[in-house]
Amino acid sequence: MKMRSLIATALVAALPGVACAQEVTLSFAHWLPPTHPLQPTGFEPWIESIKEASGGRIAIDIYPAQQLGAAADHYDMARDGIADIAWINPGYQPGRFPLHAIGELPLMMSDAKSGSRAFDAWYRTYAPEEMSDVYYCMTHSHDPGTFHSKEPVRTPADIAGKNVRPAHATMARWVSLMGGASVQVPAPEAREAIAKGAADMITFPWGSIFIFGIDKEVKHHLDTPLYVSSQAIVMNKDMVEGLPDDLRKVIDDHCTPEWTEKVVSGWVDAEAAGRQRMIDEGHTLYKPTAEDLAAWRESAAPLTEEWMASVNKRGIDAQAAYDAYVASLREAGALMGEN
C-alpha cells in the first residue's frame, strides 16, 4: 500500500461531511519481459477488472523483468512486502512446495486452459498450509512444453550425456535419471546458456523459444506435450488482511479457478502458435511413436514415486492427493491420453 494512498485517504477523511473511501496502489512484480504475452493478455485484463470492480479504488502497477528482485525470490518478495503481489515459479525453489510440485510431473496435463483451472481447484485444499505466509491467489500452467535441442531428440537415450536447461526441479531430476546434466538458470538467462554452449537443449513451451530468442540456437524438437511448468500469483498477507471488507472481496473474487483460466488462456494460445511457426521456419519436429512414448513414461515413473515420498513426509496422504489431482484433470478433459 503506497504512502501517497494513505495520505490521500487521511486528507479526505479530515474533510467535514465527506465519507472516507480508501484507495490503494499495489505493486505487482514478475520476472517476464513486458512483451511476454502473459502481461497484455492475462495480467493487464485481470488488473483492469480489479480496478473496475473496486470502482477505481484499487490500482496495480506492474514491475516486470525482475525489476524488484530475482525470479527465484518473488515468493519471498511478496511475503516480505517488497512487492504487494508477485508471480512466482515454485519450481525455482526445489523442495519448498512439494504439493504444488505435482504440477511438474511430466506426461499428465494435456490442456493448460482447463488443466490450469483443474490444478488451481485441487491446490486450494493445500495452499493455506503450504503457502501459509502469503495470501494465495491462483495457480496456472503454461501450454505443455517439450525438449528443444541443437541435435535430434527422439527417446530418453538422446538425453544421456547432454547438458539440459530444465524448466524446474522435477525436470532437472528427470534429466538426471536419463543420464543428462542440468544447467540451472532462470528463463531470462536461458538463451545465453545455450548460445555459449553451457547447455545443449532446453525444456520450454513452443512460443517461449521465440519470446526468449532461443530459436536461432535450437532446431530440433520433440513433438509431444511432455510437461508443464506451474506458476502462481501470491500476495502479501498483511496487505490483503488490511484492506476494507469491500476491497478484500474484490481481491477474493479475482482469485478463483475461473480467473486462473482467464488469465492463462491468451498465453496458452500464444505458446501453442509457436509450434506452427517452428514448422514454417524449417525446424525439425519429431513425433514420438507409441513405443517412444512408453519409453518416456517408463523413464519418468520414479518421479511420481519420489513426489509421493516427499508429500508423505509432510504427513499428507500422497496417494489420495495424487488420485484427486488426476480426477480433477480428468473431469476438466485435461488428462494426457484421455482427450
Rank of each mutant, 00 (worst) to 15 (best):
P156A: 10
S141L: 02
R154M: 15
P152H: 02
C137L: 07
E151I: 15
H168D: 09
V164Q: 03
R154V: 15
G145H: 06
T155C: 12
P156S: 13
T155F: 08
V134N: 10
S132G: 13
T125A: 03
R154T: 15
C137D: 09
H168G: 11
E130V: 00
M131S: 02
E129Y: 08
T146E: 02
T146S: 11
G145L: 04
K150H: 00
G145W: 04
K150S: 04
N163K: 11
E151R: 12
T139W: 02
P166G: 14
S149E: 07
P128H: 05
C137V: 05
T139E: 05
H148L: 15
A160V: 06
H148K: 13
H142E: 12
V153C: 12
R154Y: 15
T155N: 10
A157T: 14
Y136W: 15
E129L: 02
N163I: 06
K162Y: 02
Y126V: 08
C137F: 05
Y126F: 08
E129Q: 06
D133S: 13
T125P: 05
E129T: 08
H168E: 09
T146Y: 00
C137G: 09
S132C: 12
N163H: 12
Y135C: 14
S141I: 01
K162Q: 02
G161M: 01
M131G: 06
P144K: 07
Y136S: 14
A167E: 04
V134Q: 12
M131I: 07
E151M: 15
P166K: 04
D143I: 13
M131Y: 02
C137M: 10
G161E: 03
D158W: 05
P166W: 05
M131A: 00
R165P: 06
D158Q: 00
K162D: 09
T155A: 12
A167I: 07
G145P: 09
E151A: 15
P166S: 13
H140T: 13
T125Y: 00
M131C: 01
H148D: 14
R165S: 15
I159P: 03
V134K: 14
G161S: 01
R165N: 15
T139C: 08
P156L: 10
D133R: 01
G161P: 04
T155R: 12
H140M: 15
S149G: 11
M131D: 03
M138L: 11
V164G: 05
Y126W: 01
S149D: 13
R154W: 15
S141V: 03
H148A: 14
E151D: 15
T146K: 03
H140S: 13
H168Q: 07
D158V: 07
G145K: 05
S149A: 14
P144N: 12
P144L: 12
P152C: 04
A160Q: 11
C137Y: 03
D158A: 06
T155Q: 04
M131W: 00
D143K: 08
S149V: 11
H142P: 05
P156D: 05
T139Y: 04
